[in-house]
Amino acid sequence: MEDIPALEKKFEEKIASGIVIEPKDWMPERYRKQLIRMMSQHAHSEVVGMLPEGNWVTRAPSLRRKVGLLAKVQDEAGHGLYIYSATETLGADRAKLVDDLHTGKAKYSSIFNYPTLTWADIGAIGWLVDGAAIVNQTALAKCSYGPYARAMIRICKEESFHNKQGYEILASLMKGPPEQQKMAQDSINRWWWPCLMMFGPSDGASPNSEELMRWKVKRYTNDELRQRFIDRTIPQAEHIGLTMPDPDLKYNETTRHYEFGEINWEEFNQVIKGNGPCNYERVHARKDADEKGLWVREAAEAYAKKKLTMNS
């Protein structure tokens, strides 16, 4: 018989002393469940995140931009696969996770439910969305679950290219004619607030935060990470002449942090609930790809079986 309280005590001690938890280690069911939820959401976000950017691959303004964007989108697929692989170490079934995305049971980052209307949006995504993801993922690279932390280290190494390619796009638009500058500024006006929402609800309103912090899955609160992102991003914006759409944004000399305006949490909740501009389109595109790829998966499997019988 398993002595659950004793195992729980040992688990909590390991967490407290900073020992990383590995797949076969005993863990509370709740820890496993929370990780599967969080990691699969993260994997889905990487996969769905390919769609808004994929939209511009064929219309990239130069070959240099096109190869960069293609490589970035391919990385996002890879990141999704790293995290699905890590989630499977917890006993989750990959096909089931993907099904949950398609049926709407599983969530993904709200940011990908916004449309990419202009080329500047590709710059804004690389710089801001990936910038926010880097802040988030750098923290997760120190999380208590080994496979997740290792996947994050791999991802963080690759994200800095995403961030720089986005910034380069905006920096060159800002050096262009007024129309291009306007396009760049317009993209920031639309993406800035949704990016701040990526870090999730404020600490008081985040139901899972406390438990995840105690288990060292999360190492910093949503508000701390959001602040870190703002502090590092504003000087970059100023450098190329972009302005954030927030009249309350100002640097506080005493705290040495930027103060910012109220986030529209009602909008965030609506997008999470499925009422964002592109929710339907995103999930529909995923389902479509899954269905249209079925024959390829079946053919590969049939071929593998045939080879086996021919060799035996």
Partner: peptide, 22 residues
């Protein structure tokens, strides 16, 4: 990490695409 594949040959190709892009 891991990959899903129907046979060893495709497993190797998937592994290359997922874990050795750079």
């Amino acid at each position: 990490g891991s990959v899903r594949a129907p046979d060893a040959e495709i497993a190797l190709q998937n592994a290359r695409d997922v874990y050795a892009r750079r």
